[in-house]
């Protein structure tokens, strides 16, 4: 269909040239559409693209397009993959005085009720960082670590995140008493009643809210003949271009963040299409605004 459309447009254009009554703007605008379609055709015929998965520490030096193995001429290694999230303003640690016995499940409604309830001493930001004061009690609390999907290795007692999905969000906190003694504990958003044993003076609730993706960063190295040539971060909206190949951030391992998905593209039609875009804009401006001016003059 696009081919027929191009043919039709071409015939009309040639007709118009023979009539010799068309403006330059009109000719530019119409040829620009042919140029854009030509660029698309070049893409269909000569572009090579693939979605590749690279694991941390591994490198690839070729990809597969239409069943054929295409060598890159260099290799690209994933050093690390970084996934950052935006913390919602509603996500807070709520610290209550210890006398109260709150049995509610921790959710947004609970947070609203609790706000009005007696005993709320402080709302603590969940960003890991420096210790924050709990009102005027002399105590301080420090957020050490966030895990989205809490799991503890039963033999080593090491805490890990089973996946990047928020199945069991938990925060590790450090409570520092007025004498400077510190105690650590894990606070669970989904299980607020798990015995904390950190202090009888306080009850700490973790009010979790859905987090949104902030950054997907692939830290990669380009290697040529086993020599490191280039270290770069690939992000959405910030692809890497090397030796005619473009690498776009387009997927990740939502379970373990152990690999990155990159779109590899080499499309010689793109510059042609961009040239067509520029001609189209110039042509339209000439038809609508420059043409009428010259007629008046």
């Amino acid at each position: 269909m696009l081919v027929l459309f191009s043919l039709n447009l071409m015939v009309c254009l040639i007709n118009k040239f023979s009539l010799k009554n068309r403006s330059l703007g009109s000719s530019l605008a119409h040829s620009s559409i042919l140029i854009i379609l030509l660029g698309a055709l070049i893409g269909i015929l000569f572009a090579q693209k693939d979605y590749v998965i690279i694991r941390k520490g591994q490198a690839i030096n070729s990809f597969i397009y239409r069943g054929k193995n295409i060598p890159l001429g260099f290799s690209i290694r994933l050093n690390d993959f970084i996934y950052n999230e935006n913390i919602d303003v509603k996500e807070k640690l709520l610290v209550y005085s210890g006398e109260r016995s709150e049995k509610d499940v921790c959710n947004i409604d609970f947070a609203k009720k609790a706000e009005n309830a007696k005993g709320l001493l402080a709302k603590i930001s969940v960003n890991p960082g420096s210790p924050q004061e709990i009102a005027d009690t002399g105590y301080k609390i420090k957020v050490l670590r966030y895990v989205a999907d809490f799991v503890m290795d039963t033999s080593t007692k090491e805490v890990l995140s089973r996946s990047a999905e928020p199945n069991n969000p938990a925060l590790e906190v450090e409570l520092i008493d007025p004498q400077g003694k510190a105690k650590n504990a894990w606070i669970f958003a989904r299980f607020p009643d798990i015995h904390q044993g950190i202090s009888t003076d306080f009850q700490i609730r973790y009010n979790w809210a859905p987090r949104r993706p902030k950054d997907f960063i692939s830290k990669v190295t380009i290697l040529k003949d086993n020599q490191e040539v280039l270290n770069r971060d690939i992000q959405v909206n910030a692809p890497l271009n090397f030796a005619g190949y473009n690498f776009f951030q387009s997927g990740y391992d939502s379970q373990n963040l152990s690999w990155t998905g990159l779109q590899v593209v080499r499309d010689p039609g793109v510059p042609v299409i961009y040239a067509g875009f520029i001609l189209l804009i110039v042509g339209l401006v000439m038809i609508f605004y420059v043409g009428p001016l010259t007629l008046k003059g």
Partner: peptide, 15 residues
């Protein structure tokens, strides 16, 4: 056109 150029720089496909 700007959407197309943007798509190409974000995802590697202009349309």
């Amino acid at each position: 056109i700007s959407g197309s150029v943007w798509a190409n720089s974000a995802w590697g496909t202009y349309w």
